[in-house]
């Protein structure tokens, strides 16, 4: 598949901004609204799919498999490390909630929805979003290459 026309490519590049903002919005409001890390990450990964459709062969210069794979592993590691950090009490203990400073005190009852009072939950949503966006982009990329019967470096 060759790259598509200049109009499509330009629009795809422009769509990065709203796509990213929407994805990050879903991730950051994961503990307040429906959605969360997985859904927001999937939204971000659609940008990769859009780029593959628009740029075709040239995607090799834009998305790097190696970097995506590294980001994915790092995000997973960050997630489990966050869980481990609470182990002085119990595993997965929310040690940032009620800790004052920027994390404030946790709220209950009717409230406008504070982003910062969730403790480690928004942070976990963030790393899950990172992991899912990298992993789904990688999957789409590998599928694109194998649909062209190109053997990806790792899979022999």
């Amino acid at each position: 598949m060759d790259q598509m026309s200049k109009i499509v490519r330009t629009i795809a590049s422009l769509l990065i901004v709203p796509g990213m903002i929407f994805g990050l919005y879903v991730i950051m409001h994961g503990h307040l609204t429906p959605g969360g890390g997985f859904q927001g990450g999937a939204v971000i990964a659609t940008i990769s799919a859009l780029f593959i459709v628009a740029y075709g062969e040239r995607i090799k210069g834009i998305l790097n498999q190696d970097v995506l794979s590294l980001v994915e592993s790092m995000a997973l590691l960050a997630f489990i490390s966050l869980a481990f950090l609470g182990i002085s009490v119990t595993f997965f203990h929310n040690f940032l909630a009620n800790s004052g400073k920027i994390f404030g005190a946790s709220v209950s009852g009717v409230n406008p929805g504070y982003l910062n009072t969730g403790g480690i939950i928004p942070l976990m949503n963030l790393v899950v979003g990172l992991e899912v966006s990298a992993a789904l982009s990688l999957i789409v990329l590998v599928m694109y290459f194998s649909s062209r019967n190109e053997v990806v470096k790792d899979v022999t």
């Binding site: 590294l70 997973l76 590691l77 182990i87 002085s88 595993f91």
Partner: peptide, 28 residues
Amino acid sequence: MTLIEHAPILLIAIPLLAAFLTPIVGRV
């Protein structure tokens, strides 16, 4: 905190941590 108190979860968490660490260490 004693080790034995946390042993049940560590049995699940350590292989998970090692699994996520392996691809990064393997790069080195």
